[in-house]
Amino acid sequence: MKRIGLWSLVCLLALVGCSPSTDGGGRSGEAEEGEKTPSAEADLEVVADSLDIPWSVVETDDSLLVSEREGAIVEVPKNGQDPVRKGVKLQHEVLHQGEGGFLGLEPAPDFEESRAVFAYHTYRSDGEIYNRVVRLEEADDAWEESDVLIEKIPGAGIHNGGRIKIGPDEKLYITTGDANIEEIAQDRENLGGKILRMELDGSIPTDNPISDSLVYSYGHRNPQGLAWDEGGQLYSSEHGPTAHDEINRIEPGKNYGWPEIVGDEEKEGMETPLYHSGTDTWAPSGLAYAAQKLWVAGLRGQQMRSFSPDGEQTELKLEGEGRLRDIIPASDGSFYILTNNTDGRGTPQDADDRLLNWPGSKGK
């Protein structure tokens, strides 16, 4: 196990947006107003630093857990003690190549007793690249694989999806990418380019929309965010082809169009997005819901945005910290945000990557 540095109570200045965005609102993707320069200040606390290509952050009662793409979990205690990094012991080694690696993380419902998490990671088998979902349990010096939920999800150097979340229905939801083979997103027999839904033991729920299938929705390119509103409605964030990034309202069994349609294009039997970025790029990854808004961490866009669930307004909320990989609402109404500047596509600064706490007017 390895301890890593902690900056406590370090405040930085950031910017908060206050007007509708030009990046596309509603189904049309057209601007209602020009984007205004962010005008308010927000204090950012650096909760942990020197993270190694972090991908996912989750909150437990006493700590925050961060996945690192090379194959580790960093536990950040809420009491201010130093974070602790432990590697993972798996039946198949983590393949950290391109966008692949040790990605999504989700605590088991009984985490405080079992010290168990679910994890999504890339691996190689018989010369092919795949992704799998496993259950890990904490041991003295590592997180050890205790069960396999699913294997041989299509993988590649890009478009691996990777977000996993337990929904309000106590089912495990999993985003998968098209593994750079566009046509598999439309193949309901293929696990790539989908949002999957399973029981916590990996079995198929009896009420899934497609009989005897884990597929919950399909026609996705590279979805990397999942969030539910207070009524149980599921939303996802998805990387588009250079532009036309998407925020989708997910309905069971629906086809979200990739690669047949993008943006405002329409085709019978296919859904258009709640929002898309038009010719701009957000590169949306982590997605959260709080204070009746959707909140998105942007990679290439290097900003955090909020979106109204009615499809009418998006606002710039935070920028200036580089690439942002994940965001979750904290139990006190603030947000935890992961930077992602050490992934080979950013410009890392001293102490990157960092886990930040953003008060965000307590999500208002």
Results as ranks from 00 to 15, higher is better:
Thr342Pro: 01
Ala179Val: 02
Glu144Ile: 13
Glu312His: 08
Ser39Trp: 04
Gln303Phe: 13
Gly157Ala: 05
Val296Cys: 07
Gly104His: 11
His92Gly: 01
Thr176Ser: 02
Asn341Gly: 00
Gly29Ile: 08
Trp228Ala: 02
Val74Leu: 02
Asp110Tyr: 12
Arg345Trp: 12
Leu105Met: 03
Asp82Trp: 14
Asp212Ile: 08
Pro109Leu: 06
Ile181Leu: 04
Gly269Arg: 07
Val215Pro: 06
Gln97Ser: 12
Asp52Val: 12
Val10Met: 15
Lys194Phe: 00
Ser21Cys: 04
Gly240Cys: 06
Asn180Ser: 11
Ala243His: 10
Ala142Val: 12
Gly240Leu: 04
Glu151Pro: 00
Gly322Arg: 00
Ser8Trp: 11
Leu12Val: 07
Gly360Cys: 03
Ser8Gly: 15
Glu199Arg: 12
Cys11Val: 12
Ala119Thr: 08
Asp350Val: 08
Ile164Lys: 05
Asp43Gly: 12
Asp62Val: 05
Pro348Met: 05
Leu9Asn: 15
Arg249Gln: 03
Ile195Asn: 00
Asp147Lys: 15
Ser125Pro: 00
Lys254Phe: 02
Ile166Gly: 00
Leu294Tyr: 14
Asp264Asn: 09
Thr22Ala: 04
Gly346Met: 03
Gly320Phe: 01
Ala351Val: 10
Ser203Pro: 15
Ile166Tyr: 09
Trp55Cys: 08
Thr339His: 06
Pro329Asn: 13
Gly225Arg: 02
Glu246Gln: 11
Ala185Tyr: 05
Ser277Gln: 13
Pro348Glu: 09
Ala290Lys: 12
Gly167Glu: 11
Ala243Arg: 11
Ala48Thr: 07
Ser361Trp: 15
Val46His: 07
Ala139Val: 12
Glu182Ile: 07
Gly167Cys: 04
Ala119Phe: 01
Leu324Phe: 11
Pro309Ile: 10
